[in-house]
Computed example of a mutant assay.
Amino acid sequence: MRRARVALAAAAVLTAALLQATVVGPATVSWSVNLSVVLVAAVALVDGPATGMSFGFTAGLFADLGSHHPAGVLALCWLGVGLLCGRISDRRTVRRDACVIGVVGALAAAATTVLLALLHDGGSVTAAITGLLPAAIGDAALALLVVPLVRRALRAESLRAAHPVYTDLAGDFARRETAGFGARRG
């Protein structure tokens, strides 16, 4: 992974956490809308499950360490968001990706609430169920703004990871065949 990509990931996690605390959180007091979950899901939809899992765990752990509940709850849930979104991505339209993010974000909010109810007395199962629809709508609305930005940022040439070129191997094999290295001796 390139240094610029790591720096972008760190800046994105920090910016999402700050915007969540200052803008999104106060604007959606009664809804469980989370900009960091939307960001994790958008990165996973663009780059796949491996990147989504690592980004989700890192962003979740960062959020866990700044909260009053046990560390690891958000890291576990957001790791699942990265895995799930990375596995079901089709990368076709922003609206479809926003719908996927809305559903997965609502499920992550419900899973977080249930885990906190079990571990920390921070919620209840009924609160998790009643918060599903508002969380899905809020996360989908945020995703309509975040997904195009993430796509554009991660497709920048300076941030793309170097991929091995397999055509060189095939070309090398073809050159050996034509040079007589692979010919049968009879």
Rank of each mutant, 00 (worst) to 15 (best):
L83K: 02
R87A: 10
G80Y: 07
R91F: 04
R96S: 10
A109N: 02
C85S: 11
R92A: 09
A111R: 02
A109T: 08
R96I: 11
A106W: 11
V100Y: 06
A110N: 10
R95K: 05
G86H: 03
R96D: 09
C85G: 02
A106G: 10
L83H: 08
L83W: 11
C85R: 03
R91A: 10
R92C: 06
L84E: 00
R92L: 12
G86F: 04
I88C: 04
C85V: 01
D97G: 14
S89W: 02
I88Q: 06
R96C: 01
A110C: 11
R96Y: 09
G105V: 03
A111S: 13
R96A: 10
D97A: 14
R91L: 12
G80Q: 11
R95I: 13
V94N: 01
V94E: 08
D90M: 13
C85D: 02
R91C: 03
R95Q: 11
L84C: 08
L83M: 08
G80L: 15
V94L: 10
R92Q: 13
A109C: 07
L107F: 07
A108S: 14
G102Q: 09
G105K: 06
C85N: 05
V103N: 09
V81F: 01
S89Q: 14
V100P: 01
G102F: 09
S89C: 14
V103L: 15
D90V: 14
A109K: 06
L107A: 14
T93C: 04
D90S: 12
I88T: 13
A111I: 04
R87P: 00
I101H: 04
R92M: 05
R95P: 11
C85K: 05
G105R: 08
G102Y: 00
A109P: 00
R96K: 09
I101N: 07
V104F: 07
G102T: 02
D90H: 15
G105A: 07
L84G: 01
V103Q: 11
D97Y: 11
G102V: 07
I101D: 05
G86E: 06
R91E: 13
C85F: 01
G105I: 08
C85L: 15
V100W: 01
G105D: 02
V104K: 06
T93V: 00
R92T: 12
C99W: 12
L83N: 00
A110R: 05
L107V: 11
